[in-house]
Simulated assay, not measured.
Amino acid sequence: MSWRMPAETEPQEQLWMAWPSGGYTLGETDAEAHEARAAWAAVAHAALRFEPVTVVVRREDRAIAAAYLDARIGVVEAPLDDAWMRDIGPSFVTDDDGRLGAVDWVFNGWGQQSWASWEHDSAIGRSVAQAARAEIVTSSLVNEGGGFQTDGQGTVLLTESVQLDPFRNPGLTKADVEAEFQRTIGARHAVWLPRGLTRDAKEFGTRGHVDLVAAMPAPGALLVHVQTNPEHPDHEVSQELLEVLHASRTADGKPWQITEVPAPEQLHDGEDWVDWSYINHVAVNGGVIACSFGDPQDEKALRLLADAYRGRQVSAVDARVIFARGGGIHCITQQQPRVGIR
């Protein structure tokens, strides 16, 4: 059997999310908890305009989730540690016979981070796969959905600091990782980035998720996060990543059409350099749910996304509350492809 992970822009059956349940995602006060719940709900409602949405909710949180979520949003009960569905959930794949599969990666708290817990989240991939009635594709690779991007045509973007992280996959080589991606999602060509954004590499980050720095809006096309202000350490990072991507090719040996998407003008949030990124959006049927930041660059970035995703309506959701908790809109969502359509 040959599995393929469709591009995010291919037809979708539904979008999956997880409900904020506790820990740093909810915060320490009732006001912070409301802020988080309202932000996750805003993304769910934005996506619901385009396709069905299902949210995984802890049994004890079902009533409070119902107070925030439209009744049309599906609910699946399961224990949760956190709410980053892109990372804890499965990566859905299909085959030529029209079957739906779900890659169940090993999740270990973004490389055994000291602040993370993953007793329940490590089982969410299997729980969501079963709820979606997908065939489970078991993988021994420690990996998260935000740690790679695929065009559905054989190319996958990876990061050396994630898949080769000694706290994730000690002893594995690039060849080992690439073979597993070929087996599980049908990727026959890998483009390796050396690292991710500065803040994402620090204590409360993922050590370099791809979905903050590059997205694939169409075959052969890349949207790339670029920090234009030399005061921000990501200025150097983004220039390095651009060099790597310009030198790389697709699985078909063609150069990328690269569109640079400038970072927000705001550099710092009072705690650290921000890793705010317009790249961390999610494509849905006929639309794109995009991050906004109340920043002067919002309008330009949303226009670039609209140009890249021709024919799709770009809907912006203020993502500052989500980023304050460690990620963006792409990080809290996971698309389930429609089977039998390519």
Rank of each mutant, 00 (worst) to 15 (best):
N285F: 13
S292V: 12
Q153L: 14
P90V: 10
A65V: 04
E236W: 03
E119K: 10
P264A: 01
P52Y: 13
Q335G: 15
P6S: 06
V53D: 00
I136Q: 07
V226G: 01
P6Q: 04
E135F: 06
Q130L: 11
A215M: 05
A41G: 04
V288G: 05
L222E: 07
D97K: 11
P255A: 02
A324V: 06
V314T: 12
A201M: 15
M85F: 02
D104R: 15
N229L: 06
K300M: 10
A290K: 06
A63D: 15
M17Q: 10
N280V: 06
A179N: 00
G186D: 02
N143E: 15
V76G: 02
A42I: 12
E160R: 14
L197F: 09
I341H: 11
A316C: 11
H34C: 05
V274D: 05
S117R: 14
E77Q: 10
S127L: 10
V314F: 08
S117K: 10
V224H: 02
E180W: 02
E35P: 01
D82T: 13
G286V: 09
P52I: 12
G98M: 11
P79W: 03
D269L: 04
P230M: 03
E203D: 07
G22P: 01
I258P: 00
R188G: 01
A263P: 02
L302R: 14
P11S: 02
E180N: 09
P262A: 00
V261Q: 02
A308S: 15
R199C: 00
S315V: 15
M216D: 05
A221Y: 03
A46C: 11
S315P: 01
S21D: 05
